[in-house]
Simulated scan of single mutants.
Amino acid sequence: MAALKRVCRFNVWINPVFDERLRAEPDIDLQIGDLQGPEGALRALLEQAHVFHVSPARDELPRRWHVTDALLAECPNLLAVSSGGAGFDTVDAAACTRAGVAVVNQVGGNARSVAELAIGLMLAVSRKICVSDRLLRTQRGFSRESLMGHEIGGSTLGLVGIGHTGMAVAKIARGFDLRVLAYDPLLTAEEIRARGAEPVDRARMLAESDIVSVHCPLDDTTRGSFDAAAFAAMKPGALFITTARGGIHDEAALAEALTSGHLAGAGLDVWAPEPPTLGASLLALDTVVATYHTAGVTHEARRNVASWGADQIIGLLKGERPPRLVNPEVWPAVLARRARLFG
């Protein structure tokens, strides 16, 4: 009888297809830890786990269970950490690489959903949809002209990053007759053009765009990159949209750029922390449309991510190279350790 391959996840919400796929495999033992239970029980599960499927929501998962050097030291059998999303904010990928542990994510699984919300935020801010909704529910005596907004059609859209989601935004944007610019230092000009945008440097993108939409990861190169200087460099009257990660933009600097009138509005799906405090200055502004990191939270996207995650784990445990391997340099070591564990 083949040795059991142990997969651990905690009891945060996940589309049921994840558990169904794994439990259909006779040699996989899926264990679900209770985050409200004793810490020792969770630690015991991780000590035995070969794969840890972890929530990527950094402000929802207790820090004790973020994948760090310290946690990895408690997981001697671990072959892989699987993020339950496109990002992996709760995983120190460098620490995993040092430990010879593969990191996989589900990048692309929610790209369409995120792209649709980004476009939706552009429309909501530009057409004052949320302001109109609030006024119509609570007041009378205002005119339709007081709610007059702008069409987004024919404007210039600047994308910060044109990966899976940015490319999906560019595709939808063409239907609105938007001119699409993209700044992405990780891609060649030819690749950016192939993905549906005109390649530009960051300064030109900020200066020419009527709407700037952020689709880059949060890392040491992007953290705080939208600061007061970046907002000042944007076109007067422009809109700022982000469905990326909180921490890329400076919330206080953005509030100042909006309050001063330099920027006309913002659509924000991501915050630092999440959720923001009720007294957050950005939430007090009618020029801001706010959502709670829900861009990728649709039934379709959550099913995609859960299904992809399960399939990737099953394949990995069979010795198949994962299609979304974040740290490919560790794969030979993972294969060797897998052979020692399972024969």
Rank of each mutant, 00 (worst) to 15 (best):
L46D: 00
L46C: 04
E47P: 02
E47D: 04
E47C: 07
E47F: 04
E47I: 01
E47S: 08
Q48Y: 10
Q48W: 04
Q48P: 06
Q48V: 10
Q48A: 13
Q48M: 10
A49H: 07
A49L: 07
A49G: 06
A49T: 08
A49M: 06
A49V: 09
H50P: 11
H50S: 01
V51P: 04
V51H: 03
V51I: 07
V51S: 03
V51L: 07
V51E: 05
F52H: 03
F52R: 07
F52M: 00
F52C: 07
H53F: 06
H53G: 00
H53K: 10
V54P: 02
V54T: 02
V54I: 01
V54G: 01
V54S: 02
V54N: 04
S55N: 02
S55M: 00
S55R: 01
P56I: 03
P56E: 09
P56F: 01
A57F: 06
R58V: 05
R58D: 06
R58I: 07
R58L: 09
R58C: 02
E60I: 02
E60H: 08
E60V: 01
E60K: 04
E60T: 01
E60Q: 00
L61E: 05
L61W: 11
L61N: 09
P62N: 07
P62S: 05
P62M: 06
R63P: 07
R63H: 10
R63E: 14
R64I: 14
R64W: 14
R64D: 14
R64H: 15
W65D: 11
W65G: 12
W65Q: 11
W65C: 13
W65A: 09
H66R: 15
H66W: 15
H66N: 13
H66I: 15
H66F: 15
H66D: 14
H66G: 13
V67G: 11
V67K: 13
V67Y: 13
T68V: 13
T68L: 12
T68P: 04
D69C: 12
D69S: 14
D69K: 13
D69E: 14
A70V: 11
A70Y: 11
A70G: 12
A70F: 10
A70E: 14
A70N: 13
L71W: 09
L71S: 10
L71Y: 13
L72M: 13
L72G: 09
A73W: 12
A73Q: 15
E74A: 12
E74Q: 14
E74T: 14
C75M: 03
C75F: 00
C75E: 05
C75Y: 03
C75T: 04
P76S: 05
P76R: 04
P76M: 01
P76T: 08
P76D: 05
P76A: 08
N77L: 00
N77T: 01
N77M: 05
N77S: 03
N77Y: 08
L78W: 00
L78V: 08
L78I: 05
L79A: 08
L79D: 09
L79R: 03
L79K: 01
L79V: 08
A80P: 10
A80V: 09
V81D: 04
V81M: 03
V81S: 11
V81N: 11
S82N: 12
S82E: 12
S83D: 09
S83T: 09
G84N: 01
G84C: 03
G85T: 08
G85R: 00
